[in-house]
Simulated assay, not measured.
Amino acid sequence: MQLPDTGYLRLSQIIGNPKANPPIPAIIPVSKSTWWQGVRTGRYPKPIRLGPRITAWPVESIREFIKRTGGGI
C-alpha cells in the first residue's frame, strides 16, 4: 500500500481489514490486540485522539516505525 505524504491513518488502515468492501490490505500485519499491546509497551507509535471516538496515527510516525524496523514487525 502506498502511504500518503501527510495526514493520519486509522487502525484499520494500518493492520488491514479483509472483511471491508473492498478489502483493506495491512501495512503492518498484526492483530488488533497485538497492536494495542505494542502501543502500551512502546513498540508501536502512540496514537493521537482526533475526537472522543476517533483515534489515528500520523503517517509520519508509521513511516518512521517502518523505516526503524526495516519493514519488519
Results as ranks from 00 to 15, higher is better:
Ile27Tyr: 07
Val59Asp: 02
Gly42Ile: 07
Ala26Cys: 03
Ile15Arg: 02
Ile73Glu: 12
Gly16Lys: 04
Arg10Lys: 13
Gly71Ser: 06
Pro18His: 01
Gly51Thr: 06
Pro29Lys: 15
Gly42His: 05
Arg10Glu: 10
Ser61His: 05
Gly71Tyr: 01
Pro4Lys: 07
Lys46Trp: 00
Pro22Cys: 00
Ser12Gly: 10
Ile54Glu: 14
Trp35Met: 11
Ala56Ile: 09
Pro22Phe: 00
Ile54Ser: 13
Gly38Asp: 10
Gln37Lys: 15
Ile24Met: 07
Gly7Asp: 08
Arg10Trp: 07
Ile24Phe: 02
Leu9Gly: 11
Asn21Met: 00
Leu11Pro: 03
Ile66Val: 12
Lys19Phe: 08
Tyr8Ala: 09
Thr34Asn: 10
Arg40Trp: 08
Asp5Trp: 02
Val59Arg: 00
Thr34Pro: 04
Pro4Cys: 01
Thr41Ser: 14
Thr6His: 09
Pro52Trp: 05
Gly7Asn: 05
Val39Ser: 02
Thr55Trp: 08
Ser61Val: 11
Trp35Phe: 11
Leu9Cys: 10
Asn17Gln: 09
Glu64Gln: 14
Val39Arg: 06
Arg68Leu: 11
Leu11Thr: 11
Ile28Ser: 00
Glu64Thr: 15
Trp35Arg: 00
Ile73Thr: 14
Ile73Lys: 08
Arg40Gly: 12
Arg63Thr: 13
Pro29His: 07
Thr6Met: 11
Arg63Asn: 10
Ile27Val: 14
Pro22Gly: 00
Ile27Ala: 04
Arg40Lys: 14
Ser33Val: 13
Leu3Asn: 02
Ile27Leu: 14
Gln13Trp: 05
Pro18Ser: 08
Ile73Gly: 04
